[in-house]
Computed example of a mutant assay.
Amino acid sequence: MRPRPSFAGAAVEVSDLGRSVAFHRLWLPMLGFRRVWAGPDRVMWARGYDHFVMRQARDGVSYGPGALWLAVSAESRAQVDQVFAEMRDAGAEILQPPKELDYFAPGYYSVAFRDPDGVPIEVAHRWDELPEVSDAEQVRVPGHGVTLGGYLFRPQAGAPPHPALILLHGFAGHAHNLVGLARRATANGYVALALSLRGWLGSEGESDQGLRQPLDVLAAIDWLAHRPLVDPRRIGLVGASMGGQVALLTAAHKPPIGAVAAYFSPTDLAAWREANPFIRDYLDDLCGPEGLPVRSPLLRVAQIDTPVLLIHGDRDENVPVEQSLSMAEALRTHGKDVETLIVSGASHYFTEQEYGVALRKLFEFLRRHLNRS
């Protein structure tokens, strides 16, 4: 059993953001923290789902109520509620009653209040492991030197063996994010393995933005191919953002798969670094310049023989649409089988309507390449 973390997150206001970044990067990387996001007035460091935010104080003044924000972990949601009741009865200023938050960490439920000196404190419960899903088998899948957590969904009709999909999430995600897509897949006749990539909820190891994660997926393909309900000749990969990048890199190893679909995925990390200044610190700290090419599917197109579908919004503010357009052009230049769906007006986060358009294209593509016996 891994020890429960006591630290959930913290934020501080600093008088000089540049000076503070230079100072804190002397020690935070030693503890496994990486700069995952940077903006003009704030920087976020993360270690898995633990986070540390530095904000530039107004007028360079950082010493006063609100200059520090601290979040500590609770053992359960009931404990969060208990803290709330205690603080309310003590007359503390309640900043936020207990509620679920769509936050960096999964399953986040918290209460926030001020201490007598005005410092904001948050008490939060978040998932330590993947939660159970009633209509799926929770599985442990061998990866490349690590064990991966996930869910195995079975089709709702039809006799085995079935075509199968491995579903891969984006940065800071996990297998539970993929439950809805997995259910859509089973309704269309597929076995679906929703998988947490290394370093994310339910899986061992550290996230590496596509370095060893494709080797984990290769091992997962072999594991899935040996399930008795799966037709090993009809397996496909579907990934979003980092998951799509990992799916494309996996395909370059020439595994026995029949299709790959990638949603709004980075394909040329050097170009992505130049196009999006907010992820430069993250890529520099994690990869370094020498680590970008090996993580770039665009440089591996000659090795990809599997039919590819690339889906992207033309207003993506995180991963520019040029990442998919360049990948598609390179694949076509090498005589590869590639299709694209560019969703007009869509950002990196599809609306329900945009997601529906993409799903129709996805399953039409998969039927053509995986539903043949």
Rank of each mutant, 00 (worst) to 15 (best):
P255K: 00
W272F: 14
L130D: 06
D305P: 00
Q96Y: 08
P289A: 04
G244S: 12
Y190K: 12
D50E: 14
L26W: 04
S265I: 05
P97R: 06
S373G: 10
Y355N: 15
A262D: 05
Q209E: 09
G149A: 04
V260K: 00
E132V: 02
Q213T: 13
Y63N: 07
P256V: 00
P163C: 12
A164P: 05
G48C: 08
R4A: 13
P293Y: 01
A270V: 09
Y263T: 03
A252M: 07
L341E: 09
H162N: 04
H312F: 06
T351S: 15
E290G: 02
A57P: 10
A157I: 05
F7D: 02
G291P: 13
V217R: 09
V260A: 03
L325Y: 08
L193H: 04
D102E: 12
S344Q: 15
S203G: 04
L299K: 07
Q303K: 12
H176L: 11
P228W: 06
R273N: 02
L362M: 08
L165Y: 05
V230C: 09
L310C: 02
D222M: 10
A124G: 05
F264Q: 03
P155H: 11
R233H: 07
D231L: 05
D50T: 11
W37T: 01
S373P: 15
S15D: 14
P5H: 02
L148T: 02
Q79V: 13
A172R: 05
R360M: 12
P256W: 10
I257R: 12
P3T: 05
V246K: 10
Y63F: 13
V230Y: 11
A225Q: 06
E100H: 12
P155F: 01
F7R: 01
E206I: 03
M242V: 06
L70H: 12
R42C: 08
L325V: 03
H369G: 03
P65Y: 12
L359E: 15
V36K: 00
H24N: 13
Y263N: 12
V301T: 06
P232N: 11
Q245P: 11
Q96P: 00
L148V: 10
S347K: 07
L17S: 08
P120R: 03
Q56C: 02
T306P: 08
A172P: 11
I304C: 00
A251D: 01
Q209P: 05
A187Q: 10
W37M: 08
P98D: 05
S241Y: 07
A346F: 01
A136D: 05
A271S: 08
P232Y: 11
